[in-house]
């Protein structure tokens, strides 16, 4: 069991308000990702839930019980830190078992649980090693082991993959997602990487300047961004945002078209005409950066290899059903 609700949570440091007001509910067993640019307050929000920081106002309910006045130990949550925060002087075994030892479990039970967790994470051969003798990926797994062994109400992940190289990051992303599904434990995961958010989350919470911009499933956010910020943040390459006469023609302050929703033609047809300034050939895809009068540089993603080069004039046609329109306040017009 592990449902978490935030009701009107606020946090101020001195005179600066880091979290103005957040309402949020995390269902039991779900994988929720907090995503946003650095400094958006996502880590602070996680630390408030963990109890590592005091809230300035509002309530945090874990399984319906308000825990704002309880220390981190009493909340029954476990956390995986960005730096892993392994205890450098303890073996892997003791690192994983430390929480159980603090909870006063008998030694035999600790040993059994640690062995079990190590087994799940393929750490059994390394149990007697010290953290400094492990690779980055192994340290990461120890940190996860420390989190799962206590069978917490929820896992809190604070950018856990940012210290790994790209290949390992993809692999650990899968492992964490798979582990969370098999354990069925609620997870809150903080990242600035929208790809991680899209691939792992049941529900994404997009944060900006301490405010929740939108909450929804990955596809919701991709297909129906509520506002300009979410539209620009979710999706890679980024959505093209065009202002001026083109947008005005569609009755909006700004329009957005995703690179993958624009068709390229070379026969003189197309809604807009422009010149390719850079073409990136990835094999499976081609990214074109097209200079379009009145629209600036438009990014287009086409499948496969089309043999297009810089300097060529092309026609671009956005899929009309997938054009996003935003008003003066940046809100989506639906």
């Amino acid at each position: 069991m592990g449902s978490i609700q935030l009701k009107g949570v606020t946090k101020t440091f001195g005179n600066t308000s880091v979290i103005p007001h957040v309402d949020l509910s995390v269902e039991d067993g779900s994988f929720v990702v907090f995503v946003g640019p650095s400094g958006c307050g996502k880590s602070t929000l996680l630390r408030l839930i963990a109890g590592l920081e005091d809230t300035s106002g509002g309530e945090i309910l874990i399984d319906g019980r308000n825990v704002v006045n309880e220390g981190p130990a009493k909340r029954g949550l476990s956390m995986v830190f960005q730096s892993y925060a392994l205890y450098p002087h303890m073996s892997v075994r003791n690192n994983i078992g430390f929480g159980l030892k603090m909870a006063g479990l008998p030694k035999s039970e600790i040993a059994a649980k640690v062995e079990h967790a190590a087994g799940i994470l393929n750490l059994t051969p390394y149990l007697e090693r010290k953290p400094r003798e492990l690779s980055g990926g192994q340290r990461q797994r120890v940190a996860i082991g420390r989190a799962i062994v206590r069978e917490p109400k929820a896992f809190l992940f604070d950018e856990p993959l940012s210290n790994l190289d790209a290949a390992l990051r993809v692999q650990m992303r899968l492992e964490i997602a798979r582990l969370q599904k098999s354990l069925g434990t609620t997870a809150i995961y903080v990242t600035h990487d929208q790809v991680e958010a899209m691939t792992m989350a049941d529900k994404i919470v997009v944060l900006n300047a301490g405010r929740v911009e939108q909450v929804g499933s990955p596809i919701d956010l991709y297909e129906r961004p509520d506002n300009l910020f979410v539209a620009g943040f979710i999706g890679s390459p980024k959505m093209n945002l065009i202002e001026g006469p083109i947008a005005a023609g569609l009755g909006a302050k700004t329009i957005g078209a995703r690179p993958e929703h624009i068709t390229v033609t070379t026969d003189g047809t197309g809604t807009w005409q422009g010149t390719i300034s850079v073409a990136e050939h990835l094999g499976s895809d081609t990214f074109l950066y097209v200079d379009v009068p009145n629209a600036g540089t438009v990014t287009v993603r086409t499948q496969g290899e089309l043999g297009l080069k810089a300097g060529i004039t092309v026609g671009l046609t956005p899929d009309p059903a997938r054009i996003h329109r935003f008003d003066n306040a940046g809100k989506a017009i639906r």
Partner: peptide, 8 residues
């Protein structure tokens, strides 16, 4: 950045 308890 810490909790009131630890500051005290």
């Amino acid at each position: 950045m810490a909790t009131r308890q630890s500051t005290f």
